[in-house]
Computed example of a mutant assay.
Amino acid sequence: MRPARALIDLQALRHNYRLARELSGARALAVVKADAYGHGAVRCAEALQGEADGFAVACIEEALQLREAGIQKPILLLEGFFEAGELELIDRHDLWCVVHSPWQLAAVEQARPRRPLTIWLKLDSGMHRVGFHPEQYQAAYRRLEASGKVARIVLMTHFARADELDCSRSREQLVTFQQAAQGLSAEISLRNSPALLGWPEIPSDWVRPGIMLYGATPFAQPHPLAERLRPVMTLESKIISVRELPAGEPVGYGARFVSERPTRVGVVAMGYADGYPRHAPTGTPVAIDGQPSRIIGRVSMDMLTVDLTDLPQAGLGSRVELWGKQVPASEVATCAGTIPYQIFCNLRRVPLSYF
């Protein structure tokens, strides 16, 4: 069997969820959209079901997968519904739903649910993706309140630059939210992972931890609270071939690496078809049998090459950690010019093993 695999530490996942609750003092929806950022939504939700206040997903397909697996806690649809007909499924499966557009609001008013709905009313406070404009927000709230179709409304917005701790934009968005929501009697949800870790002054009755659940920092710089997170995924494989090269020899496609000295090259069963970032350059860290090393040359579809020159004990069959407890996913992402969210979500073909 091909040795590439991803080990998923469910105890680390629970630790990170508890940290979100501890830091916020609020209730927390565990964000398990996009198959729990590549970690397996059903298994992650099962691991958290005993203590999570609820879950958040992107769309109804993801919610139904959790319900079919026996997850009974509240599930919020972060993008709401895409067609009015989905409201029947939302009602049947007792899902919570974001409303961010006038047409969705009208659909709720026309719906005939068996029981009143829980609606999270989204404000566009400055990110400018979805959400009601500030001048529309109070009227949207009043319409939901008067519709007779809604039992509970939670007020929410989303920060565009909360991962930039030296940027004033989050405070500006908070002021916009507070002005738009003034006088409305409802719970609020404002903090995702970077806002939860980096902006303790922002109030929130509900928080929405996403990337922090999986043990990766949302920040480009070190942060003391992010240091308390535990990596959940360890992506690993093994050395399947070893080459001894003299100085001056190219390695891999495009000859992007040329040996400057006699070099031992290890070939690892891992590539961009597995979701490892193709643009990870020479120097991207790996750990080989627990010892630090680096990628050399281009990442191929099914294989990549690593430097074994200073690791004489390493060789055929040696374990290679691509990211995990020893090699932070955020460092790999930075080297590849991306973010840990993407490298987790891009994972495929690699079997997940839970412990």
Rank of each mutant, 00 (worst) to 15 (best):
A195Q: 04
G297K: 06
I60G: 05
P200C: 01
L66D: 03
A6W: 01
P74M: 09
D205L: 00
D166K: 08
I71V: 14
P74R: 03
K73Q: 13
V232N: 09
D310C: 11
L304C: 15
R261A: 07
A58M: 14
L190W: 06
M233H: 12
E164S: 10
R142C: 05
G54F: 12
V258K: 11
Q173V: 03
G148N: 00
E321L: 02
Y137W: 09
W323M: 03
L225R: 15
I71T: 10
Q104N: 07
G315K: 11
I202C: 01
A52F: 01
I295S: 01
A26F: 02
A107V: 05
V150G: 01
V154H: 13
A146F: 00
D94W: 10
G85E: 14
C345M: 03
L174D: 07
E331L: 15
A84I: 05
L190Y: 06
V108G: 14
A84E: 09
R92D: 15
E51Q: 06
T282N: 13
A186V: 01
F132Y: 11
H100G: 08
R278W: 04
E227F: 03
Y17D: 05
A333I: 02
A333M: 05
R243G: 05
G198Y: 07
S147I: 07
P200E: 04
